[in-house]
Simulated scan of single mutants.
Amino acid sequence: MLSIEHIGSAHTDDELALLLQVAEKRRHAGQLVLDLDDAGASAAGTSAVVVGTSC
């Protein structure tokens, strides 16, 4: 379900920047970080190759 939440009103660029940070944190609240630093590396040190996709 879609919901709309008012986070505040900005009167300056600094206030707007702060509100955008708050909105981004609320948008991703509870979402875990996916660590992709070593993703796709096999034991041989080569990267994975995508051979097909599904829509």
Results as ranks from 00 to 15, higher is better:
T53S: 11
H11I: 11
E15H: 11
A39T: 12
K25I: 08
M1I: 07
S47Q: 15
V50R: 06
A39N: 02
L19S: 02
V51H: 15
A41P: 01
Q21Y: 01
D14M: 02
C55S: 08
V50L: 07
A17D: 15
R27K: 15
S9R: 09
T46G: 00
A23Y: 02
D35I: 00
T12M: 06
M1P: 03
A10M: 04
C55Q: 11
R26I: 01
E24Y: 05
I7F: 13
A10Q: 01
A41W: 15
L32Q: 14
L19D: 09
L32E: 09
A17E: 14
R26N: 11
H6F: 02
L34N: 07
L32R: 00
L34M: 08
Q21V: 00
A48P: 03
L16P: 02
A43T: 03
V50Y: 06
K25R: 07
Q31L: 07
G30R: 10
H6M: 09
Q31R: 06
H11Y: 08
A43R: 03
Q21E: 12
S9M: 07
R27Q: 14
A48G: 02
L36Q: 06
R27P: 07
A48N: 05
G40K: 05
G8P: 01
V49R: 05
K25F: 13
L19E: 04
L16W: 03
L34T: 13
V51E: 14
M1A: 01
S47E: 09
A43C: 09
H28I: 01
A29I: 02
D35N: 00
T46Q: 10
V33W: 15
T46A: 03
V49H: 04
L32G: 01
K25C: 10
S54K: 05
I7N: 04
L2P: 02
H11R: 03
S47V: 11
D14K: 01
R26C: 05
K25Q: 14
D37E: 15
E5V: 06
K25E: 14
A10T: 05
L34F: 09
S42K: 07
T12F: 13
D14P: 01
V51C: 14
H28L: 05
H6L: 09
K25G: 10
A17N: 10
D38T: 06
Q31F: 12
I4P: 02
A41K: 01
T53I: 03
T46F: 10
A48V: 11
R27F: 11
D38N: 13
T12R: 06
E24A: 04
A10G: 01
G8C: 05
T12H: 08
E5S: 02
H11N: 11
A44T: 10
S3R: 00
T53H: 03
T12G: 00
T53M: 12
G40W: 05
D14R: 07
H6Y: 14
V49D: 06
A17P: 04
S47N: 03
R27D: 08
R27N: 08
G40M: 08
V22K: 13
A44G: 10
T12L: 08
H28N: 09
S47D: 15
D35M: 01
M1R: 00
L32W: 07
T12P: 02
L20G: 10
A23K: 03
R27S: 13
D37R: 13
A10R: 04
G52F: 14
H6K: 13
A10Y: 12
H6T: 00
A23P: 05
V51M: 09
H28C: 01
